[in-house]
Design a protein around this nucleic acid. Structure first.
Lengths: 334, 334
DNA sequence: GTGAAAGCGCTAACAA
DNA sequence: TTGTTAGCGCTTTCAC
């Protein structure tokens, strides 16, 4: 019976089994240097056979590239973070890069702890994600020795930053309603101190020059409900469409309209913002809404950090990625 | 002007600045070996001053412990995954362990890719999370050279596995309703092919020996709505309480009851399952529900993998962690 | 109590 | 084309 040590195979094992030196083995495995095609194939085959897998720690120590990036995030229960992270991870895994997930809960002590851990691990870059465009990181990220990409968060002026194009998204919603023949469109949205809220409201106003009416409030169903009650009591001309700042607000709006026996979309069409499926799919009728393409945002952020970590030049400043319109029954669109 | 190279400080820099050898510096920094207390303090102070941070790659290469673990997950848009991950990360960061997040989308190819990457990075262990107890990992995890912990998923018989105590959670719900004086309790729940559904239904039946009535269906609001309509049309004795298999179902139930002008909780009390705040907080009235303590599940999984990676003995088999009851207005409890 | 030296597994000059 | 060699930054015997 052959005694096989169960320690992991190293490049030495490959070299010995293939009858070459470790440098030849290394070159063959990585397609670097000048290696005879035949030798290369043989080395690769043998590596495969004996189950060789390179030690990423050793490689990283030498090359000073760990092929890992850190994601520092604020948003624990993250309906934003998770799709973004999935997008980041999805592009990076194809480039052999793994992702450390660090939830900071917006706590500076925790953020520092995670940041130090990431730096110790020699990550090639950091992606910082928050839930608001106008929220600062809980820890200083601006003078790190590695590149940083911001998603849904504000970095220094010359940083690489991604977020959704709120104005374009709002235009998409309003133009959809206008194309459906609606003319008295109301905008019920979140707190005015959110940049996203202001951007969306601005785009909405530009699309509805006559009689644009914005109701700022909270990010809750409750607020959607309340706003509708406020608008639809009494007489006077009523809106024939409502563009909501979030799907949650839209849900409250829809529930309130149903309570008042106002038919959707016949009397009032409703459009939301987020395409948060668990909400948008479950309203009655299902909600037409704006999708912020969070996964794509993650893709772009991943590609950016990849490029930066290789020393490539990436356009700095804010890049706003287009939103898309998801039509369901609440707007009566097709 | 002193030229300071901006490469990272190494233990050599610390040793030189402190006038000791690198081995002494290492011992001092790690509180290992016999080191003069005074020397130790001096070395630590100097390390701090020059901004020394140990290179985790070098350390891991030598010690064969990377102080990183991988989380392999199925549930991309994860209302389960995220709290669990947060819990894992929360305990581990305090032990200097970081977490790689790998979303597999239940895709074997992707899972293999991620698993290999984790192995290459010499992770100290892997936590596999799924969304169902009776779902197998998309990749073979049973004979890895590193420990594996399963959360919300089934591992081999002798593996370490955590999930919530569905039966205890169900008993909590039913007993709460009984304590409130309800006697005709109906159970509207998800598909019977889920183990969790069967366990909850069993516990419910045991608590309601007389007239226990279970309606299996889907995990949707729609189903909750439909089930209520089915039950409350026609004459005959109606339930005075409904225990739902999920918060989403409960939401449908509550909406349907309101549509029928049945008052909650006076005529019918409702309890959900999940404590998914975005749903449970927004129902009218707010939903009494069962919390699966996902973060605590993550804590336990993190501690388990930590212990296992240190070679400690951990009880194998399935550990079910208690759920808790969150009382809101839908049950009229206090 | 401290230091010299070996070496973790790998890559990249440079020689042959 | 291939092999030899020198480290990457750190921990850890084992002399002193």
């Amino acid at each position: 019976m052959t005694k096989i040590g169960d320690r992991r195979r190293t490049i030495y094992d490959v070299a010995k089994a293939a009858g070459v030196s470790i440098s030849t083995a290394s070159n063959a495995l990585n397609d670097t240097g000048r290696t005879n095609a035949e030798t290369r194939e043989r080395v690769k085959r043998i590596a495969e056979e004996i189950g060789f897998r390179p030690n990423a720690l050793a490689r990283g120590l030498l090359t000073k590239r760990s092929h890992a990036v850190g994601m520092l995030t604020n948003d624990t229960y993250g309906r934003l973070t998770l799709p973004i992270t999935a997008g980041v991870s999805e592009v990076l895994i194809d480039h052999g890069v793994s992702v450390f997930l660090c939830a900071t809960n917006n706590n500076p002590r925790l953020a520092k702890l995670h940041l130090d851990a990431l730096l110790d691990r020699q990550v090639d870059g950091i992606i910082f994600t928050a839930t608001r465009l106008d929220l600062k990181p809980p820890v200083e990220l601006s003078k790190l020795p590695i590149p940083v990409v911001y998603v849904f968060a504000e970095g220094p002026a010359d940083s690489v930053t991604f977020f959704p194009d709120d104005e374009q998204g709002a235009r998409l919603a309003v133009n959809h309603l206008k194309a459906l023949g609606r003319s008295r469109i109301l905008h019920i949205t979140g707190p005015e101190d959110y940049l996203a809220v202001r951007l969306r409201a601005r785009a909405y106003r530009e699309c509805c020059p006559s009689g644009a009416d914005v109701m700022f409030g909270e990010w809750s169903e409750e607020w959607g409900h309340e706003a509708v009650e406020r608008v639809f009591v009494g007489s006077g001309e009523k809106p024939d469409a409502i563009f909501c700042g979030s799907d949650e607000i839209a849900r409250g709006v829809i529930d309130a309209l149903r309570d008042m026996n106002i038919s959707i979309p016949t009397e009032v069409a409703v459009v939301g913002f987020d395409n948060w499926e668990v909400v948008a799919r479950q309203t009655r009728p299902p909600l037409t809404t704006i999708d912020m393409e969070l996964k794509e945002l993650g893709h772009q952020a991943g590609l950016a950090i990849l490029g930066l970590s290789k020393g490539e030049q990436i356009a700095t400043g804010i890049t706003r990625l287009p939103c898309s319109l998801v039509v369901r029954q609440s707007s009566g669109g097709h």
